[in-house]
Design a protein around this nucleic acid. Structure first.
Length: 395
DNA sequence: CATGCCGGGAA
DNA sequence: TTCCCGGCATG
């Protein structure tokens, strides 16, 4: 018995490998690498979206309602502001009024057609930021500047913002007026059975405060808690090339797009939903992301509030969100610090967009290979022998 | 480069 | 199913 094993060793693993390798078993592979991942994750995403959204309570009715709602709004926007600023956040009706915000065009530092060679986006929490309400946008201040207010001390009340969103654009606008993409931010109430969509943060906050939180006081008695109960939704009806770049208008979370963005499929008006969420109950919000697990992918479900740091994939380049969020709208939001919001990007209409799921990071422990070495390959667990996840030394 | 292992093909 | 490996991510 033992001897046998020893003998077996005489034909080295290499030899084995060589033999097998030589038979050229492999014929052309249909899909490789990122591509197959795309399709996979897309379907996954969609599945999850469906599942989650249906569990949101009043299944279909509500959902479709919202969708319709959303589409109406979008449509209105598109009509109203053919070339309006992507940052327009006032109600559709008013949109036309704020057309004169200049929007740096895709020249600004974007490479619409070549997506991110380094598509990593991240921001980090207030490490040395003294001001709690500053979202710390280290971002490409030049490439893409949604309506991130420059202010460092207390941004104006949302109402104000709402009224003068054009003003926030008067940064420094060297470029007279260019084509702006049609990006719209809406705010959706995530309260169960609600799902109200409003066009301003203030509005949605007020809504939540009064309707759901039962508070009567004015907007100034906000403690920022409402922030948790709505999601910010970005609709991009344009070619989306700029999609991700303008994350976080007035929401608790801050996102940064780093110059390059990924051109999404050109076909079909794509809608980009950007949703930031937090709080447990939001698990019901129609947002899911493929989380770390990959192989057994389907099993992974998004667990809110469990992590403040995750990465999701967007087309090929992985998009990494990290960090802490601070509420730009409220200077005092301690409650925030503890519960980090999670910002999630969900792609909806473009049929195929998203990237590979993030791969499980390599296990730390020793594995058969390390323990037994190549020479004793036959002592490996089968999984290791098959180049699967080790079953003997699991992490 | 070595390692871990996913995704998928072949038997 | 079982066995195997290309290829990629990660360290």
């Amino acid at each position: 018995m033992e001897a046998q094993k020893g003998e077996a060793n005489s034909l080295s693993p290499e030899a084995l490998k060589g033999e097998r390798g030589a038979d050229g078993r492999r014929t052309g592979r249909p899909l490789e690498g990122p591509e197959r991942d795309h399709t996979r994750s897309v379907s996954l995403l969609e599945q999850k979206r469906n599942v989650v959204s249906s569990s949101i309570d009043v299944p279909n009715v509500r959902k479709s309602e919202e969708e319709v709602d959303m589409e109406k709004v979008t449509a209105a926007m598109v009509l109203t502001s053919l070339s309006s600023s992507p940052l327009v956040r006032s109600p559709p009706v008013k949109v036309s009024e704020c057309l004169n915000g200049s929007w740096k065009d895709r020249g600004g530092g974007f490479t619409p057609s070549s997506y991110s060679s380094s598509g990593y986006w991240s921001w980090s929490g207030p490490s040395d930021q003294s001001n709690p309400s500053t979202p710390s946008p280290p971002l490409s201040a030049d490439s893409f500047k949604p309506f991130r207010m420059p202010s460092i001390n207390g941004p104006p009340p949302d109402d104000a913002i709402d009224e003068q969103d054009g003003s926030s654009l008067l940064f420094d606008e060297p470029i007279p007026r260019k084509r702006k993409n049609s990006m719209k931010v809406m705010f959706k109430c995530l309260w169960k059975n609600c799902g109200k969509v409003l066009s301003s943060a203030a509005g949605i906050q007020r809504h939540i405060r009064t309707v759901h939180l039962g508070r009567n006081c004015d907007s100034d008695c906000s403690d920022g808690e409402e922030d948790f109960y709505y999601s910010e939704i970005k609709l991009n009806t344009d070619s989306v090339a700029d999609g991700l770049s303008s994350l976080s208008p007035v929401s608790p979370s801050v996102l940064h797009a780093h110059s390059n963005t990924t051109p999404l499929s050109r076909s079909a008006p794509s809608a980009l939903y950007l949703i930031h969420t937090d709080h447990a109950y939001q698990a019901t919000s129609p947002v899911t992301i493929p989380s770390t697990g990959s192989g057994s992918a389907a099993s992974t479900s998004f667990t809110p509030s469990s992590s403040s740091n995750f990465s999701i994939s967007w087309q090929s380049p992985p998009v990494t969100f990290t960090g802490t969020a601070v509420s730009p709208t409220h200077s005092r939001t301690q409650s925030f610090v503890e519960q980090r919001p999670q910002t999630i990007a969900v792609l909806s209409s473009p049929p195929r967009a998203t990237g590979s799921l993030s791969r499980k990071s390599r296990g730390e422990g020793k594995k058969c290979r390390k323990v037994y070495g190549m020479e004793n390959r036959d002592m490996w667990c089968t999984a290791c022998r098959w180049k699967k996840a080790c079953q003997r030394f699991t992490d």
